[in-house]
């Protein structure tokens, strides 16, 4: 029997597909801008699409929470997302003040999504540690 619930298996498949879509959209956008192939509305669309693809990961996490029938797994996922969100918000606000006081350089806002994903990964690690500790 799989160590993943049915909802987790579905979620993992969706994340893999979305990762491929995100990579394709990002590479296409970089190519279009690098070769100056888009201007005006097309440039806006090409620049926005990678961000929209990234937001799909947030949607998938929410969808998984809705579909997971195992309440304990739902609690673990909620904790994982809260840890990830807490880490990202802490980094964002601390960096914002540092930047505001001229102590660090500017970083592009899409980095916060990357930090959120790293934070969610740390949340998963916390869950594994808590699971092993109590087993």
């Amino acid at each position: 029997m799989s160590r993943f619930t049915v909802a987790q298996q579905r979620h993992n498949r969706r994340v893999m597909v979305l990762s491929l879509v995100y990579a394709a959209v990002l590479m296409a956008a970089i190519y279009l801008f690098k070769h100056q192939l888009v201007t005006g509305a097309a440039a806006w669309a090409a620049a926005i699409l990678p961000g929209l693809a990234t937001s799909g990961f947030f949607v998938l996490h929410g969808r998984y929470l809705m579909e997971e029938g195992d309440e304990y797994q739902r609690m673990l996922q909620t904790r994982q997302l809260l840890i990830g969100s807490g880490i990202m918000l802490t980094f964002a606000v601390v960096w914002g003040f540092l930047e505001g006081f001229g102590l660090v350089g500017h970083i592009m806002a899409w980095n916060w999504a990357v930090i959120w994903l790293v934070g969610v990964g740390i949340g998963a690690l916390v869950n594994v540690i808590v699971e092993r500790k109590g087993a």
Binding site: E71, Q73, M75, E131
Partner: peptide, 14 residues
């Protein structure tokens, strides 16, 4: 439910 759920309930973690 998952085996982890049973374990968490048995050990009082959940």
């Amino acid at each position: 439910v998952s085996r982890q759920s049973v374990n968490a309930i048995e050990t009082g973690r959940y």
